[in-house]
Design a binder for these strands. Structure first.
Lengths: 109, 109
DNA sequence: GCTACTATTGAGTGACGCTATATACCAGTA
DNA sequence: TACTGGTATATAGCGTCACTCAATAGTAGC
């Protein structure tokens, strides 16, 4: 992955994953697959798992351990109330930034 | 500044500053002021100067030392050819990310 | 001498995403 | 039995970035 993308994902990837979880609960492996599906083809699994652990420690998600037919038990994460608030804050921050950049890019202010 | 904003600025602030320099050459103190002007009210001076040093080391900007009437000499930075290329790459990366997030936000995919 | 504005620099910190590796469970197959 | 491959999670170590805090330097006005 490009270096620029790596840096730009900092802080953003977290929001992306929370946004994915806001649709429905999912587990790590599934989330990684969904990210790839959506164009983030180079995001490593380790990155996602570490992020999920952080989200759990921050109290943004609830966890449920569910047995899998094809491997070790899955840890299914679901967004809780605090996570939803945090996600809204994320969108506010993102929108602010996106507006400024939009202006910078087209405006030639 | 919010933590989310701090993290989200990683990789982005660099592009913002380069975009500012793409309009016209400017020096650090001036750039900081312009950032505040544009809504980034809480970006510390130290942050900007460190970023400018990095950009210089990466060879993205040319530097000229010019005496000031009201203080120490100014270091005026101007975007060079490599910097322009890098800025274009930045916009490509940003657009990719912005599109995905747009989709995630509205799409409810 | 003191304050205030202009202008740059540097040490130390915390957070994040990446790399690489390890572990675990099951199915098919040689 | 041993091996391969897909599923599923975890973690140590790394580099980069923005932030905090402090220091330094030049000029002007009181």
């Amino acid at each position: 992955m490009g270096k620029q993308m790596t840096e730009m994902l900092k802080g953003t990837l977290e929001g992306i994953v929370l946004a994915i979880l806001s649709v429905q609960p999912e587990y790590g492996y599934e989330i990684t697959a969904r990210l790839r599906e959506q164009g983030f083809s180079d995001i490593a699994e380790g990155t996602v798992y570490a992020l999920l652990v952080r989200n759990e420690q921050k109290g943004l998600v609830d966890v449920e351990k569910i047995p899998s037919e094809k491997g070790p038990p899955r840890k299914v994460y679901s967004l809780n109330a605090q996570g939803r608030e945090y996600l809204e804050e994320f969108w506010r921050t993102w929108n602010f930034l996106a507006e400024r950049l939009e202006q910078l890019h087209t405006g030639r202010k």
